[in-house]
């Protein structure tokens, strides 16, 4: 009886901890999302209004430039820039990273570990530290405030990690499959496309999501390399809501939702592959 009771208490404690955990994990984000659907006056109200009296899409209408009191922030342009830059750089980084990851997974060559470590160390250079010289060089190349300038930088940002992940995915595929295909009459290239690539596809997609998120969320470099609606991305655009002393919280929260939603969808699509790729590539040397 007492043992039963103790077990139940233990289970309850476990659940309580898990529940608190969820609250801490979710509430900050949810609060921002909730605020996106509330009028600014409710957000600023003193005493606070806990439960919204009504939910409204006004904030979204405002930042997209509909309705009466517009906010002159070109969110649509930022969204477009973010999409173009993140997608393009992801596709390129995937192509380059897949080639690199395949080389790491399937070939023995001299300086393999050194090359791998080198790529990682280059990736570790802090964005803000890199932004200084890149800013100067890009100005000379005319790449400041251009989508291309940011795309190039993001490709470099994503290649090392993409290669690492994809290396892990290819290693989960036995080398014999490619060999069997070659004995069966394929060239190495055919064996790759018909056997290894289809098997690694979901993993490569996961790596792509990771790369996309990195580009989509990046701020330190983007804030220095972009100027105008020609290239400004959403995270940089977020700064538009801050004036010298005030912040348009409602508008900002609405924009936050716009940034989060695509990221959210993508991540949940591939979360399983993401974890398996990370652990496999890391653990099996």
């Amino acid at each position: 009886m007492t043992r039963d009771l103790r077990r139940q208490l233990k289970a309850a404690a476990l659940w309580l901890t898990a529940f608190l955990l969820m609250v801490v994990m979710c509430v900050p984000g949810l609060w921002v999302v909730l605020s996106a659907f509330r009028p600014n006056r409710e957000i600023l109200a003193k005493p606070p209004v806990w439960l919204p009296e009504q939910l409204t899409l006004d904030n979204f209408a405002k930042i997209f430039g509909f309705g009466a009191d517009q906010v002159a922030i070109p969110v649509a342009a930022y969204f477009w820039n973010s999409m173009v830059i993140a997608l393009t750089s992801t596709v390129i980084a995937l192509a380059i990273g897949t080639a690199g990851g395949y080389a790491f997974a399937r070939f023995r060559f001299r300086f393999k570990n050194a090359v791998f470590l080198g790529l990682m160390l280059f990736r570790a250079v802090p964005g803000i530290a890199l932004s200084l010289p890149v800013f100067i060089l890009w100005s000379r190349l005319g790449l400041i405030d251009a989508q291309l300038g940011l795309i190039i930088v993001y490709v470099a940002l994503n290649v090392p990690f993409t290669a690492w992940l994809i290396d892990g995915f290819f290693r989960q595929i036995p080398e014999q499959l490619s060999e069997a295909a070659q004995v069966d009459g394929c060239t190495r290239w055919q064996a790759f496309w018909r056997i290894e690539f289809p098997l690694a596809r979901s993993g490569i997609a996961a790596a792509g999501v990771f790369a996309f998120l990195t580009s989509w969320n990046e701020f330190a470099l983007a804030s220095q390399l972009t100027r105008s609606t020609d290239s400004k991305t959403l995270p940089v655009g977020l700064m538009d809501f801050t004036a010298q002393f005030t912040i348009d919280w409602a508008g900002m929260c609405a924009m936050a939702v716009i940034i989060i939603v695509p990221a959210l969808i993508l991540t949940f699509l591939v979360q399983k592959h993401l974890i398996s790729g990370l652990t496999f590539g890391g653990v099996k040397g």
């Binding site: 036995p174 069997a180 295909a181 004995v183 069966d184």
Partner: peptide, 17 residues
């Protein structure tokens, strides 16, 4: 290359696709 040798191979862990 293997594909031009007209041989077939059976692997230890089968290597089925």
């Amino acid at each position: 290359p293997p594909r031009k040798r007209n041989i077939a191979m059976v692997f230890q862990n089968y290597a089925l696709y």
